[in-house]
Design a protein around this nucleic acid. Structure first.
Lengths: 223, 223, 223, 223
DNA sequence: GATGAATGAGACTTCATTCAT
DNA sequence: AATGAATGAAGTCTCATTCAT
């Protein structure tokens, strides 16, 4: 459309506005939600006129979709770059959790935005784009889980379901944070999440001797 | 719609219309979200006139709040009734998961509605009511976890954070279901969730011999 | 929709607003044209709130369509009532012209509105409704012409094309009037239009002796 | 689009862009109407940037006015050139109709554009220019009629009103064509229009014997 | 208790126009 | 002479809410 003709051309001046708008929209959407955010607010936040929003994005829903899609891509890109894949899996997995937590703390807004199930009244093609972006991300996580299962480290549970659950855990953490307003540190959160994911809720000792899924009550403990 | 199962009225029947409206609102909110649901839609679904909505509830936000609050109370009531508390904890916990899954499958709409972070533009007192209801529910789950920790069965992780994470897991499952459209059975879901919560992701064998939190890679495995 | 249920019911209270709006819209559209008329203007003219317009009509284009359709129906109804059909055709035709002219003077606004080819950006179904209404009216006029041809009074030219041309003449007259701002009287206009339609432009004498459709030039004239 | 037929530039080629824009505007306005045509559309159609439109014309309304004015001048120029004025009037009149029909078929877009009563919201000076151009054209046709009346060929009806009616007829024909999508040939249309104008609707035979304006019915004509 | 016609503030979006390049 | 990113006034339409019945 407006794009770089001849293949080369101005890589930078491709509308500085576009990025300013995306940044503003991220802040606004994540803080107030999609419906409570007015295009007027985004424009003011970005320091451009309302019309400039529509010069860069066809509609509010499109702006939202672009935000989520590009954000998810960025997420995956960063994850891919930060996680060195030839580490032994346990280390690999711990880094996944760590980088993830870090990303979430830094891009909390984006994650909240992308998790928001607001696509109800959207045009079908936009819903599709947003869902495809989410799926790509869920699929990325599921892929890591699947690799862990193939190498025998992870239990053979449904990888896609697990990925959804993991994202749900992250969502739960974010909600907990916004409720209690006492943000945990990066390391504390990483340990917490890693522990839950890797070991589950069960205390180490009682579970160790138990033979089945149901550990006996502690009174049977010789110690 | 989802109405009066088994003959017992689940939400207080202060008036015939009131109940019809709550049922209709539950269906509408859960299916289309708060903002995409019009008062007109609810009225039509309930088979009453729009004015009747305002005769029974001061505002749309109040209707939403009433729905969430009464729903959460009902949840807790049922959980309390169904879970016999003097069972040994592991059994207790498994029943919690099982009943929870059952409730979620039956009252999926209510859970989706209550999880929706749509209270952005609401009046402060209504936000407070909704959050109090959610907190009561999260607190209930956290209480069970705390009891499990006190009896030594569960790892000493932050109970409130854990409760949020558990609800996040459930949310993730529900989203996974609506994406894949192949609803798991009650028992399958219960096992899946229970397994993840109790044992974590780690495969049993390799983890068994490891001494620390970080299991060694399988090549060190003599078997 | 909002309509008379059970078949009987309140014939009158079927929204007095609706008629007030149609009247106001007629005045506004005819005076300023479709695009230059704001919904705000119509509301003010009708003495109702902007929302009332949308309570009665789904959109501006729908309001326009309703206006044209109901107007055309009214036109045909009046024409049918006023023209006694068993008169000899010449009288019949003269009355058609006379009543037509009268209608046009009285409902000039409506005719201007209906003639306006503004349906360009309209939804297909609305375009269809408006065109159907126009066609019904053109067809009515064409029917009268056809009858005149069958009884041998009118030349066997394409009736539908003739009807369009007649409406074009009327349109031309209305434009002429709005240009010159000196409205002719009912009778003067009737005579003028009738003369043109019945006898054409040719002066009686010279044309009388010509044998064919193409009158010879005056040099062949003995006088 | 409709451009430079026969090698002669029809609209003054003050600049290359200017002409491209006028051509594009003609196509766009005639097809979609003034209000539904975006400056963007015209620019795209002309293959120039939006700014170039404003480099050549002060405003959209000015562009429209220039189009109509130059078009009408061109019309009159061609009519004057094609109609040799010293022919006997009947032949003169027939050529007028013939050339007119030809022009209309070729420049249908321009005629439709110029006939469109869209000047409602225009600035007074622009309205004046457009109306002056239309009037010049209507006056040209009225002048021919007046000449016909002076030489005794045409009935002494109001020449200006007649001119308007004639243009209305032509408009009616064009609408009929766009409705029925079966364009008549040049000659067929010429005959049809000429017949209507010269002889009116009345069938030759019955009208021949009648003495007055109201012919008697054919059956019981005792004399 | 219940109704539904009426309201009007405010949202999204359009598009003619400008101006630095 | 030409461009196109940016603008912002103004329009259409939505929908929670009211109130006379």
């Amino acid at each position: 459309m407006t794009a770089t003709r001849d293949g080369k051309a101005p890589l930078a001046p491709r509308s500085r506005s576009r990025q300013k708008i995306l940044d503003a929209a991220l802040g606004a959407f994540s803080r107030r939600g999609f419906h409570e955010t007015r295009m007027e607010d985004i424009a003011a936040l970005a320091g451009v006129a309302k019309g400039t929003l529509y010069y860069n994005f066809p509609s509010k829903a499109d702006l939202f979709a672009a935000l989520v899609c590009e954000g998810m891509e960025m997420f995956i890109t960063v994850l891919d770059r930060e996680i060195v894949s030839d580490l032994p899996f346990p280390e690999h997995f711990r880094r996944l959790v760590g980088v993830h937590v870090e990303l979430l703390l830094r891009w909390r807004d984006l994650f909240v935005t992308a998790s928001n199930p607001v696509t109800h009244g959207f045009a079908p093609d936009i819903v599709e784009r947003v869902e495809a972006a989410r799926d790509r991300y869920v699929g990325y996580v599921a892929g890591i889980i699947r690799k862990g299962q193939e190498t025998g480290y992870l239990r053979p549970l449904d990888p896609d379901l697990l990925a959804s659950e993991i994202l749900g855990i992250i969502d739960g953490i974010l909600r907990h944070q916004s409720r209690t307003r006492t943000p945990h540190s990066r390391d504390a959160l990483t340990s917490e999440v890693h522990a839950l994911l890797v070991h589950g809720l069960l205390a180490p000792r009682p579970a160790r001797d138990g033979a089945g899924a149901e550990p006996k009550p502690p009174r049977g403990d010789p110690g």
